[in-house]
Structures are given as C-alpha cells and as structure tokens.
Design a protein around this nucleic acid. Structure first.
Length: 490
RNA sequence: CGGGAUGUAGCGUAGCCCGGUAUCGCGCCACAUUUGGGAUGUGGAGGCCGCAGGUUCGAAUCCUGCCAUCCCGACCA
C-alpha cells in the first residue's frame, strides 16, 4: 500500500497497526486498551466462531453462558489461580451513580457493594462453583461445556487484537471422572485448534506443552499451539489446559465413582480469542494490505466493472448477474462493486488493502472477447481467462490460494526454525534472524528464567512430537534429553 | 509503572524558538469532463489548535498542572 501503510520492513509494529486501522478491521476506542471491532473485522470473527463452534459440537460439546461478574471471594479459592490473575482484574465496587447537585455525575458512595465483583478474566471459578451443583455421580460426567464470551484482563500494554483489555473468546470447561479422560480431552481440543488454525487460517503451528513457568495459573499442564509471525516472533494462538483436580478441590466438587468411592472431578479448560485475527493479519499480509485466506475472507471474490457508458455497464451487469448467481450457488462469497462513485483503480487498491483473495475485472474489451481479468491477491498476478467456465476456474483458484498461503507460511516457518547448540549462536540468531530456535535445555525454571532475562526469548513449548536425543543445555551445559522451542514472543 | 514521542478540520500536517484566532495535502459537498491501477478542473463546506489554570491588551505559540494515544521496556493463559 503506497498510501498510508508503512512498509513491513521499515517498521513492523507500525505496519501492523496501519493494516488493522486502514483495512477497517478495528479502531481505537475512548477506553484505554479497548478497541472497537468494526464490521469487516467482526465478520472474520463470526466466521471463526461458526467454524469452531461446529468443531466443538462435532466433538460433543454444548454451549452455555455464565455471568460476566464473579464474586471476589471465588478468586481466593485456588491459590495459584488468584496469583496469576489478581494483578489484572477490573473490580466493580458500586452499583449506582448520582447527580452531585453541581451537574456532575458521581459514584453514589451509599451504593457500595458488600462484596466486590470481578469482571471475569476467565471463568474457571464461577463455572466450577456451578459444577458443584451439577455433579454427584460418575453418571453426571463428563460435562462438556463451552462458552462464547468477553473477558477483561487489565494488561499494562495492549495491542490491537493481540492483547486488548477486553477481548472476545470462547472458553471450554469440561469435567471428567478420570485423569486419562481429562488429558485425552485436553489433547483433543489442542488438535481441534491446530486443525482449525492450519486449515482455516492457513497458518502452520507447533503443538506443544508449556514449561512450568509458562503454565496457566491453576493448571497441571498447559498445551499450546505456537505460530510464527513474519517478523520472527512467536504468537501463542491457543491453549488447552489439564487442570487436574485443582478446581474441583478449590470448589469442593466431588463425585461418587463406579467403585462407590468419593473422588474429586478432573477438569480441563481451553480457549482461543480474537487474538487469532491478529495472527491472521500478521502472518500473511504484505505492504499492499491484508492477505486473507479464502476460507475466512468475508468476501472471496469482488467483481469490478470497467465502462465508459451506461449501456456498457448494463451489458457487463447482465453477465455479472449470472456469474454471481453461479458463484453464490457454490457458496462463494462474491460482491459486484458497481459503484459509480469510485474509479476502477481506487477499487482495486481498496480490495487489495482489505485482502479479498480474487478480483474479477470486466470491461467492454472483455465483453467483446468473452474474457475477464482475474487477479490474485496472494501472488499479485493477473491473467485473462475465458468467461466460459469461469465459476469453475474461480472455485479451483480459491482452493489454490488457500493452500498457497499455507505453503508460504509453512516454508517461512521451516526457514526460520533453527537448531542451535551454543548460547552464543542462540543469541546471535535472535539478533540476526529471529524465529524458532530449537535448543537443549536442562529442564530447570532457573535456567529458563535466566535465558529470558538475558535474551527476552522464552520457551514457547516443548513440542509434542519431539524426538528424544542426548544433548547439553545451551546455558548450563547440563545434560538434556530433548530440544525445546525458544523464541521471542508477542 | 519507567524511557521516548505526539496531540492543530474526518485523516495526515505547517505554524510554536521570535505571542496578533491558522498553512498545505488527502478526504467531503456541487457541477462538468472522466472511468483497463488510487482521475481532472472550477466552486464550496468544515477548526473551542487535547483539557484546565496562569502570564499578557492579546496565547496554537510562553509557564504550570493534568489527560490521552503511540513506540520501546517492565508486565502478560
């Protein structure tokens, strides 16, 4: 984008912000750290929701909704959980405003809540408080519930889509009779996320487990998918937690098992958020604007007429009317942009900025030749193709674009994943060619912390498919049995 | 919360040192000519110069305080 979008190489952060704002995905709001998701951005979220929701249902889950406000006392019940979230909670203390007589609206101090309410940073507490009433017997298990919701985390520094004070997400909360079943659920949902991100966002991920340092507050194990952005930084795209019996114990959720013994319930939770939209933008886009994978693009094909006179437009419109009818019959999202108020060049630039995968341009010359001009957003290439059979060509091209975008990201990930064996090399790579660094680590939190302090790189995950091999920790030289994945992260 | 920067029309900006109510571009509106990569011309509309104080005859400009946003840190499933 020559107009108004900073080049990716010049200033990656600025480029990203420009894209979000200029492509009409979102804008800043009057509330610090909170953004307004505009219709174009929200329609991507709606598509993500629809697909994920289908996958959740397919795996046996049902949706429910729990309150946005949680009694403060709930948070003190699980020690590490409160530790993890206390510093970023928004607290509701009053329930009424009043006019102070000088025309100012002030908080009515007489309307102070006896117990403060917390705007949920996540819903484990209120949900497990609820599950206590739902579960008595193994016959009540499993409970496989998901919630689509907003949550609030008062982060110090926010970034559009990637980390906002309020964000939209889904959170699954399941209850099981055995640890094996809960772990299987945790892994299943991680795979659902990985499939979704790879197949729909066209973004390859690494599946892995977090180290103790990076684990979710209250979890025994946190599984995650990690993606690599174009600047070589990693982005956690989704997490799935095995919570053990921590929340069941905290909220006293017991059940009678088949052996007629009382036991605490085993739990999982898992979530992905509107951060995925940020990942989508960062992973594929270029200096001309967004590059959206066809499967998630709100608009897959845009048709731009080029004409001098009304009768030419009428002629083109007749053809396009039939074309759009055919495309829509194939469930292809198409728009005929016949606005007379913008010239073709302006439209081309606009749809490139917005990442529409395919553009069809039709002028009188095409109408005479029985052709159209077909332009791909991902490769920025144009070709002239016959009107005859165009629908089938478009259908194939959309699939090709989807896989091309994925392949490109896959290549990028491969090129920017490096095995390093010394700390010097590790530091050099971080500075010269940031990306995933696969290295040996002695397994201690102290070493992990020291590497983080010294290099800002964290262990993104211990990959699930890790091969076991002898090695020495890059920092301490102590023996190690496998490589872990380091990177600087968002 | 620390460091840096910025707040002037919808957006991007000039003016600030050296005080006299504001420049230019994009966008917007009207008309005409245009339409195969961000059109051109003519005319027009749009401003409590971030907010609050202070200095002054007079403040976008000087002083004080505050607020907001962005970037870099710290922080962050």
């Amino acid at each position: 984008m020559s107009k108004g979008v900073v080049s990716k190489d010049e200033d990656y952060s600025q480029w990203y912000n420009d894209l979000v704002l200029k492509a009409d995905m979102a804008e800043y709001s009057p509330v610090k750290g909170c953004m307004i998701i505009k219709p174009y951005g929200y329609s991507i979220w709606e598509r993500m929701q629809a697909v994920l929701d289908g996958m959740f249902k397919e795996t046996g889950h049902v949706n429910a909704y729990f309150p946005m406000m949680i009694p403060k006392s709930f948070f003190s019940k699980e020690a590490s959980h409160v530790e993890g979230f206390a510093k970023e909670c928004a607290v509701v203390t009053h329930y009424r405003l009043k006019n102070d007589g000088n025309g100012n609206i002030v908080v009515d101090e007489t309307a102070k809540l006896e117990e403060e309410l917390i705007l949920r940073p996540t819903s484990e507490t209120i949900i497990w408080n609820t599950y206590k009433g739902w579960i008595q017997s193994y016959r009540d298990l499993p409970i496989l519930v998901n919630q689509w919701a907003n949550v609030v985390r008062w982060e110090m520094r926010t970034r559009l889509f990637l980390r906002t004070t309020e964000f939209l997400w889904q959170e699954g909360h399941t209850a099981h009779a055995t640890p094996e079943e809960a772990i299987a659920e945790t892994e299943q949902m991680l795979n659902v996320y990985a499939d979704f991100v790879e197949n729909w966002l066209a973004l390859p991920v690494v599946r892995g487990k977090k180290t103790a340092n990076e684990r979710f507050a209250g979890a025994l194990d946190t599984y995650c998918i990690e993606a690599l952005m174009q600047d070589g930084k990693a982005l956690q795209a989704g997490t799935s937690h095995f919570l053990g019996q921590n929340f069941a114990k905290a909220f006293d959720v017991k059940f009678t098992n088949k052996e007629n013994k009382l036991d605490y319930v085993w739990a999982t939770s898992w979530g992905v958020s509107t951060r995925l939209i940020g990942a989508l933008i960062m992973a594929h886009s270029d200096d001309a604007g967004l590059v959206l994978p066809p499967k998630l693009a709100p608009l897959q094909v845009v048709v731009v007429p080029i004409y001098k006179h009304q009768e030419e437009l009428d002629n083109i419109s007749m053809f396009v009317k039939e074309l759009t009818r055919e495309l829509k019959a194939k469930n292809i999202r198409v728009k005929f942009d016949n606005r007379d108020t913008h010239r073709p060049g302006a439209k081309f630039a606009e749809y490139e900025l917005k990442g529409v995968p395919l553009r069809v341009a039709i002028g009188s010359r095409d109408m005479q030749n029985g052709t159209v001009e077909l332009a791909r957003r991902d490769t920025k290439t144009k070709e002239t193709v016959n009107q005859e059979g165009l629908t089938a060509v478009i259908e194939v091209l959309l699939e090709e674009i989807q896989s091309n975008i994925y392949q490109k990201a896959l290549n990028f990930k491969a090129e920017n994943t490096t095995e390093v064996d010394t700390y010097d090399e590790f530091k050099r790579m971080l500075d010269e060619q940031p990306g995933f660094l696969s290295a040996h680590w002695d397994g201690t939190s102290e070493t992990e912390q020291r590497i983080k302090d010294e290099t800002k790189a964290t262990i993104r995950c211990i990959p699930l498919d890790n091969k076991q091999e002898e090695g020495k920790c890059i920092l301490t030289g102590k023996p190690s049995t496998q490589r872990v994945l380091f990177a600087r992260a968002y």
